[in-house]
């Protein structure tokens, strides 16, 4: 009898165990968005591949422009033939479908925003999710006098040589000081005022 009870206990616990495993398997949920690339390979691609497309290479029919700005900005003015997918909504199912479709039909999705830095984030995210047909358009847009002004953007181009600027400022500051010294000294002579006052005294 004792043995029978032991067997009973073992079978009950193993049934429970199986149930738990079943529940686990059923509840196992794949994340909605699966990364296709890990960070290391993404970083490698970023430094190796050219993912920035200049404005003048847009003529190809295999290019679809994607405006990642808010719908309000998009309606005010956008590039010709662009579709609007706001950056915050790129992971929505219907939008991912668009990117998937473009990828399947071997078309490039070229993203742009007000600044290229703005389109950078959605690009990077989509790229990690495996949409390697996504590129960046190197333009900056601004809205002026009721029209959209598009300028080509130089990514990460330094505006100035700061070291040279500082050295130059130091040189200028020390040089000018020496030149101006003699110019300042004559101001010391105030006798002009004395002359004016003397006639007054005389008048009295």
């Amino acid at each position: 009898m004792k043995e029978l009870e032991k067997v009973k206990r073992i079978s009950i616990s193993s049934t429970l165990f199986i149930l738990a495993v079943l529940v686990g398997v059923l509840a196992y949920e794949r994340p909605e968005n699966m990364y296709a690339r890990n960070t290391k390979s993404t970083l490698e691609d970023l430094t190796r591949l050219n993912y920035i497309i200049p404005m003048d290479k847009l003529d190809s029919p295999d290019v679809v422009l994607v405006d990642i700005r808010r719908p309000y900005d998009f309606e005010q003015g956008h590039l010709e033939n662009a579709i609007n997918i706001p950056a915050a909504e790129i992971l929505r199912e219907e939008n991912k479908k668009i990117f998937r479709k473009l990828k399947d039909s071997n078309k490039l999705a070229v993203l742009y925003g007000n600044k290229i830095e703005e389109a950078n984030i959605p690009f990077l995210l989509l790229y990690q999710l495996g949409y390697d047909n996504v590129k960046l358009l190197s333009v900056n847009n601004k809205y002026l006098h009721n029209s959209l002004i598009t300028e080509s953007a130089d990514v990460e181009k330094p505006v100035a040589n700061i070291r040279a600027f500082i050295d130059e400022s130091v040189r200028n500051a020390t040089k000018k000081e020496e030149v101006k010294k003699p110019a300042v000294i004559p101001k010391k002579v105030i006798p002009v005022k004395k002359k004016k006052k003397l006639p007054v005294e005389g008048g009295c």
Partner: peptide
């Protein structure tokens, strides 16, 4: 079930936080 568990990791291991969170 054990066999099934062996099959599961074939789905590529996801590195890092969820994409939605990152966005």
């Amino acid at each position: 079930l054990a066999g099934g568990l062996v099959m599961l990791p074939k789905v590529e291991k996801q590195e890092g936080i969820h994409a939605e969170q990152l966005l």
